[in-house]
């Protein structure tokens, strides 16, 4: 097995975002406009609006059963909203957009157990008609990026849960999308692995200037990761608030979470989410 030579950051993904670029001036990559969704006569989402900027890290947070996953499926083109529209890269989403990668919650079901880690990562590239050498190189780099070296010939079930989710993230990275959508990606791993994967996601985002939309029910996780948090609450779910998170570019599991601003945002979101339940809506 040959190890690839050291390389610069920029040759993996074009156009890394310069750190500290003014977010407010960046163009919109994902426009959620007046999105509603009903399962038959049961309304789940009502009039959601949000413009996700290029390179932004948006977390969508809300209690279980608020329709977070439904929203994510609308964004990924796996479902069509019953009202409003989702525009990605200037095009209305009617099917999964090609420049979008999705990381699912359940890694054990999103990876193919009959393919090795490498083959799992390269299958989308193969379908895109990318040649064998480039596929392999991209897979190995993506694996290195997520901190997995030497596991490319392993099957997913030979890896721990955290490692499997890393493979799923590597698959998304090797696909070189403009944006990654993540559906509660760290919900099925232990706390330490979860913290590691959170930092990995932040590092990858910084590295490639990629736009990330991450769905979670964990308020701490949302605040820790996000540039902006979309708070969903109520039935049907509406946007209770879009909270700007001003905790700087560099986050740290201990220091960031000890900041007064972190605590303030955390309680602010917590109150927003709890409010409808106190009123006894049902």
């Amino acid at each position: 097995m040959t190890r690839s030579a050291p390389r610069t950051r920029s040759d993996f993904h074009p156009g890394p975002l310069s750190p500290g670029a003014p977010m407010a001036q960046a163009e919109t990559i994902l426009d959620i406009s007046d999105v509603s969704f009903s399962y038959g006569s049961l309304p789940v989402l009502r009039g959601l609006n949000c413009r996700v900027r290029k390179g932004e890290f948006l977390c969508i947070v809300g209690p279980s059963g608020t329709g977070k996953t439904t929203l994510l499926q609308c964004l990924a083109g796996l479902r069509l909203p019953t009202g409003g529209s989702v525009v990605f890269n200037g095009k209305t989403v009617t099917e999964p957009p090609a420049a979008l990668a999705v990381v699912f919650q359940d890694y054990s079901r999103s990876l193919m157990p009959w393919l090795t880690a490498e083959d799992n990562i390269t299958l989308p590239l193969r379908s895109a008609g990318i040649d064998r050498d480039t596929r392999r190189e991209r897979a190995l780099r993506a694996l290195e990026e997520v901190g997995l070296v030497g596991v490319e010939k392993k099957y997913p079930w030979q890896l721990s849960g955290g490692m499997q989710q890393r493979v799923a993230i590597a698959r998304a990275l090797a696909y070189q999308p403009a944006a990654i959508i993540m559906d509660e990606p760290f919900a099925s791993v232990d706390a330490q692995t979860r913290a590691d994967l959170e930092d990995l996601t932040l590092r990858v985002r910084d590295h490639f200037g990629i736009t990330v939309v991450l769905v979670t029910h964990d308020i701490d996780e949302a605040v820790y990761l996000a540039d902006r948090v979309m708070v969903l609450s109520g039935r049907p779910a509406t946007v209770a608030d879009l909270v700007d998170v001003d905790l700087g570019q560099q986050r740290d599991q201990i220091e960031t979470k000890a900041m007064p601003e972190f605590a303030r945002l955390r309680s602010h979101i917590y109150r927003l989410i709890r409010r409808p339940a106190k009123g006894g809506v049902g």
Binding site: Q73, A76, G77, L78, E95, P96, A98, L100, A101, V102, F104, D106, R109, S110, M112, W114, L115, D119, L123, P124, R126, S127, A128, R171, Y175
Partner: peptide, 24 residues
């Protein structure tokens, strides 16, 4: 979930059969 993966990653129909549905 596997179906969604194959949809979002634009796996070709033949590859869906050969590497998705058939082995599953």
């Amino acid at each position: 979930t596997l179906r969604s993966v194959m949809e979002t990653y634009h796996i070709r129909p033949w590859h869906r059969f050969r590497y998705g549905f058939l082995p599953a």
